[in-house]
Amino acid sequence: MFEAVLTICALSGAPCREALLPGFEAEACGAALPQGARCVLLGPALEVSEIAPGVFVHRGQVAEADAQNAGDIANLGFVLGQRSVAVIDSGGSAQVGEALWRAIRAQTDLPVSHVILTHVHPDHVLGATVFDGALVVGRAGLARALADRGASYLQSAARLMGAAGLGTALPEVTAEVADSRVIDLGGRRLLLRAWPLAHSGTDLTVLDEASGTFFAGDLVFDRHIPALDGSLTGWQAVQAELATLEVSRLVPGHGGPVLDWPEGGFAQAEYLRVLAEETRAAIDAGERIGAAAGHVAAGQAPLWQLFDAFNRRNVTAAFSELEWD
């Protein structure tokens, strides 16, 4: 399989990278290409696992975004129907989105009709522009959240990833889900559900009805410490409801990439419980937020990767929320 690529560079003329032009894949070169593009053998694809018939998942690195991983730090998925394909989260850069495109093309020639974004965070959304022509679906409020945060996300991507982040842009959300929605891929239905304020204000989950596979986005973390960007008490309430779901398997936003359920959520539930209880105790003791951030939930450190990068932020967010309870 061959593809078209185009060299893109920073405004200064360096650095540069080869960027995929989706839609020009062919068994051999020869098709007319846009000016400046060239035909090459199909480039590297993301490694994916078929966790159920027609359901594929890529496990992102448990790490922070940098030039080496190009923002490949979140779990991504796609589901094959008889008529089209749905992508579930798109990665943290255009480069990751391109590699995901190649992974899909290794499985099927069907068009990608939907890109479903489980929430606003950049490691899940910044590869979406690669899937030109697909409907970009998110929870109600996602477009506004991207407008508010997008400039900061792109600046961070440029700073952290350098050339690996070139070509990365914000997606345009073309459909929002206020409550629930069904997507039919042809003989295969995906059930989308919007959640109240929890991990973030834009959480959306996807259930593949045929296989019972549930894509939780960042409502569920595994190995990677949970990251709070919404409401701690809201997240605890949502987690309690998630625990009642009867699903065959669950794909978390990080870690896994496949968890038994509800057992796979026990560690997160315990972290959120400890975070809430110890934060409340610090507030009751009259501590300042900075002092609390230095010790709350410290006993959980051996259980989670990236603890030092996220726990203080979590305590700060929890303290700000709970001091007004």
Rank of each mutant, 00 (worst) to 15 (best):
V251Q: 10
S113K: 02
R188V: 07
T168M: 03
G212Y: 00
D89N: 14
L135T: 14
F221A: 04
L228I: 10
G127Y: 09
L322C: 01
A140Q: 12
A67W: 10
G286V: 10
E176H: 14
P111H: 07
L185N: 08
G13D: 12
G43M: 01
T174Y: 03
I104W: 03
G186C: 08
R313T: 08
R139T: 11
R149A: 15
G201M: 13
G91M: 13
G212Q: 01
E172G: 13
L185P: 12
S200K: 07
T129N: 06
L80D: 00
A63M: 08
V177C: 05
I289Y: 00
A291M: 09
E277M: 06
A32L: 05
A169P: 00
H224S: 05
A164E: 05
A276G: 04
L100F: 04
C16W: 10
M161Q: 07
R149G: 02
R288G: 15
R38Q: 06
H199F: 14
A292E: 00
R83A: 10
V238Q: 15
S113L: 03
E64F: 12
D222R: 06
A298D: 05
A45L: 13
L322Q: 02
Y153W: 08
L190S: 12
P171Q: 03
L242T: 06
A94R: 13
A158G: 08
S113G: 12
E64N: 05
A134I: 04
A45N: 07
V137T: 11
G77I: 04
D284R: 14
E47G: 12
R181C: 08
D229F: 12
G162T: 10
V62P: 10
A216F: 02
